[in-house]
């Protein structure tokens, strides 16, 4: 039996060919990752401080920083609201598109997916203009229709601000979910459906007992990537309150209701004049830990049947 050892004369070329990738990875990913970890143990700012402070930044974040916990709570709340809605509506609309009732399937797929192709910057600004207090389209429309007498300060209220962000993410990602579900549904062998029909299964039974179980790998992928993306949320709420559209900027929205961990990292390190790189790095690593934790919970939860069997 041939023992596989490291690099030798015959196999050195593959290693050399893949070396450029690892070279770039080491310089542009690994080094920044490790350097950021080091930074999180320092109090580096640009005003002359650059001392090793051990776990001080982490202790401050976890034990004394209500803004960090609030930002984390916000993104978890957003995920808890939009993720089930995306799964539910994504599947329903995908099954409608895939059904015999709909003819121009490509048109509908593209219509829903186009929102996903829109840049988050544009989405943030569009929603800021739509929901502006005095000059926004929504308020003007509702007043014209007589539904409200006084204009509502949508973006000035903590509760409304959260719903608007949830709506933005839902609107943007619905097409993405539909795309995956339609692809998943199209890949299910039609003979399974035919067999179910012959056995007299109702449409409801077919959907719940065939379609959903067979879409499980897609669900797993969508849920886990949504959790990761959801915890990293920043562009949409930031643009909503950047002042680009509304004039006045508002870090974190009213009462910090749409503040997110990554926004906090940006705020501590780059925005304003605190330049707290050590703290920003600690926020980045803490967020990473929570992303790993919640992704693991998501995977375990979706795989619970598989495990029990």
């Amino acid at each position: 039996m041939m023992k596989t050892t490291g690099i030798n004369r015959t196999n050195k070329w593959p290693y050399l060919f893949i070396a450029p990738y690892f070279l770039f990875y080491a310089v542009f990913s690994l080094f920044p990752i490790l350097f950021t970890l080091y930074l999180s143990f320092t109090d580096w700012d640009l005003f002359g401080n650059n001392n090793f402070v051990g776990f001080y930044n982490y202790v401050q974040l976890f034990a004394h920083d209500k803004f960090f916990w609030k930002s984390l709570g916000n993104v978890l709340l957003f995920i808890a609201c939009y993720l089930p809605a995306l799964v539910l509506f994504g599947m329903l609309i995908a099954s409608l598109i895939e059904s015999r009732m709909i003819r121009r399937k490509t048109f509908f797929r593209l219509s829903f997916f186009s929102a996903y192709m829109t840049t988050p910057v544009a989405i943030g600004i569009i929603f800021a203009l739509l929901f502006d207090w005095q000059g926004g389209f929504i308020n003007n429309l509702f007043v014209e229709l007589g539904w409200i007498h006084e204009k509502v300060n949508w973006l000035g209220s903590a509760a409304w601000a959260r719903w608007i962000v949830i709506l933005m993410i839902f609107w943007k990602n619905l097409g993405y979910f539909i795309m995956f579900y339609t692809a998943g549904m199209a890949s299910i062998d039609t003979s399974i459906y035919e067999a179910a029909q012959i056995d007299g299964a109702s449409a409801r039974s077919v959907f719940f007992r065939i379609t959903i179980p067979l879409l499980k790998p897609i669900n797993l992928f969508l849920v886990v990537t949504s959790i990761i993306g959801g915890l990293q949320l920043v562009e949409e709420p930031m643009l909503l309150y950047s002042g680009w559209a509304s004039g006045t900027s508002m870090t974190g929205g009213p009462d910090g209701s749409v503040f997110t961990p990554i926004w906090y990292m940006f705020d501590a390190s780059f925005s304003g004049s605190s330049f707290k790189y050590g703290k920003g790095a600690a926020i980045a690593y803490s967020t990473f830990l929570f992303i790993a934790l919640f992704s693991l919970i998501g995977i375990k939860w979706l795989n619970r049947d598989g495990d029990s069997k």
Binding site: D132, Q134, S246, G247, T248
Partner: peptide, 13 residues
Amino acid sequence: EAKLSMWSPSWSA
């Protein structure tokens, strides 16, 4: 005050 946001489009208008 008219409850506009300073530097917003409605403020400029």
